[in-house]
Write a protein that binds this DNA or RNA. Structure first.
Length: 120
DNA sequence: CCACTGACGAGTG
DNA sequence: GCACTCGCCAGTG
């Protein structure tokens, strides 16, 4: 992986994102070894063929928003995610606190004293 | 080698 | 929270 092309490393990381969870471009880039390569992650996925085994739809922008330029692609991505149980709010955003991929598995527990606000 | 591009992200107002 | 600007850096021509 070390000498592998940049895109391959990006794809390798994306393949690790579990079903029903989403990662951000920056997160993917970082895990691939590119400290400031969020754009490269996006560019790599953009170059991906339509029927790739790479779960490209599980990658969103840091704000939980779909970053695709083309409307058709955005619809496809949202449909694929909803098919895995990921919910979008009225503004078309995903709550990363709930569906964000936590590498390491340990869900970030709410800080003591924080207000738990009617979750779903 | 240089210029331009872009599925980004953090900072600022 | 939204709109803008600026920094990033691999790919492409």
């Amino acid at each position: 992986m070390r000498g592998a092309p940049t895109w391959e490393r990006i794809y390798a990381v994306v393949r690790r994102v579990p079903r029903g969870r989403v990662a951000t471009y920056g997160q993917v880039a970082l895990l691939a070894g590119l400290a400031n390569g969020a754009r490269q992650a996006g560019y790599a996925l953009h170059a991906l063929p339509p029927h790739s085994a790479v779960p490209w739809h599980r990658v969103l922008g840091a704000s939980g928003r779909i970053s695709l330029r083309e409307p058709a692609g955005r619809v496809t991505q949202q449909l694929l995610l909803e098919g895995e149980g990921v919910r979008f709010d009225a503004a078309g955003r995903v709550d990363l606190r709930r569906f964000g991929w936590r590498r390491g598995g340990a869900p970030p527990r709410l800080a003591r004293g924080s207000r738990r606000r009617h979750i779903a």
